[in-house]
Nucleic acid binder design. Structure first.
Lengths: 149, 149
DNA sequence: AACCAAAAATTGTATCTACAATAATTGTTG
DNA sequence: CAACAATTATTGTAGATACAATTTTTGGTT
C-alpha cells in the first residue's frame, strides 16, 4: 500500500521529506512484525540482535563495547540487555583476564539453540519481504547506503 | 558508508535479510538525527509527528483514534503524547459534544508557532538526505511502498 | 426500559530508554 | 612513582513504551 494511504497524508513537501517518513514508517512496520515472531521465543528484537552478533563471532567472545558498536540500534544499553540474556542463560559474561575493565560476552549452547529454532522460521519471515524482486532489493540496499552518506 | 562497515558484518544470508537490517539501521540513524534537531525545541519525534498531523487538519480538530492511525509509529500511546503536548500548551483537548466518548484534539497558536520555527530549520535537515538524487529518492519511495505490499 | 456489545479513551504496571553521573582499571607523563 | 587522563562498564533516575485491563458512552436488541 502507498505511504499516503498508510498514514493518510495526501502529499509531501518533497520527495526527500517523503523518504524520511517512508523509511521511518517501513522500519516501524518491520520492527513490529519481527517483535511478534520473536515473542514466542521469549526475546525482543534488541536481544535477538545481540545474540546474532555473538553467534557471528562464536566461539570467540566479544567485549561489551564491541557488541554496542555492532548493534543496529546503538542507543540500546548493552549492559542491561546482556544482563537480561544472562538471566535467561543465553549468554555468558566474564571479566577479561588481560584487562579487567572489559567484560567478555559469549553465547551459550542454550543461546545457540534458541537461535537455531528461530532460524527454522526465518525463511517465512523473510518471505514477507519478497513483494520486491532481488534486483529491487539490491537497488534498495544501494540507495539506503548512499543515503547515509 | 556501507552497512557492512557500519555494523561490522561481512556478509548477509541474502539480499532480503540485508534489506531488513538496512531499513532498521537507516531508520535508527534518521530517528536520532531528527531527535537531536528537535530537542532544542523541547519536543520528541513522536510529539512532532502529532503536531504535524494536527497542523495538517487545522483548524478542524481530529479525534484521538484518528491521530493514532495517522502516526508513523502506531504503537505510541496517543493519550499520553497528547497530554504532554497539552501541558506545554501546544494542543487543545475537548470532549466532543456529539459523541462524548471522543476527544477532539487541535493545535494551538503556540503549537503552530513552534512548528513554524522548526520549519525554518527543516531544509537543512532534509539536506542531509541529499546524498541521493531526486530520482533515487523516487525509486526508494517506490520500492519501500512495494516492500510493504 | 433493560441488557449487551461495540467504540473510544484512559489507566496500571512492568519493562525499557535516554543520558548523565559514578566506579573501576589501565595508560601516560612530568 | 604520583597524579592525572582515558577507557570500559555500571548505575540512578526521570520519562517513555507495550500491552492488557478498565471505564465511559453510545447503539442496538429484545
Amino acid at each position: 500500500m502507498s505511504l499516503e494511504q498508510d498514514i493518510k497524508q495526501e502529499k509531501f513537501e518533497s520527495e526527500f521529506h517523503k523518504v524520511a517518513v517512508n523509511v521511518l514508517f517501513t522500519s516501524s512496520w518491520l520492527y513490529n512484525t519481527n517483535a511478534v515472531r520473536l515473542k514466542p521465543h521469549g526475546i525482543t528484537p534488541e536481544q535477538y540482535n545481540v545474540l546474532r552478533i555473538l553467534r557471528g563471532s562464536h566461539p570467540k567472545p566479544i567485549m561489551l563495547a564491541e557488541v554496542t558498536c555492532r548493534m543496529i540500534d546503538k542507543s540500546s544499553n548493552a549492559t542491561r540487555l546482556v544482563e537480561k540474556l544472562r538471566q535467561k542463560g543465553l549468554v555468558k559474561r566474564e571479566t577479561c583476564a588481560n584487562n579487567r575493565r572489559q567484560v567478555d560476552i559469549s553465547i551459550t549452547a542454550k543461546g545457540l539453540d534458541v537461535l537455531s529454532r528461530i532460524d527454522k522460521e526465518s525463511e517465512s519471515w523473510v518471505a514477507t519481504l519478497k513483494n520486491i524482486s532481488k534486483s529491487e532489493a539490491q537497488e534498495l540496499n544501494r540507495i539506503l547506503d548512499k543515503l547515509r552518506g
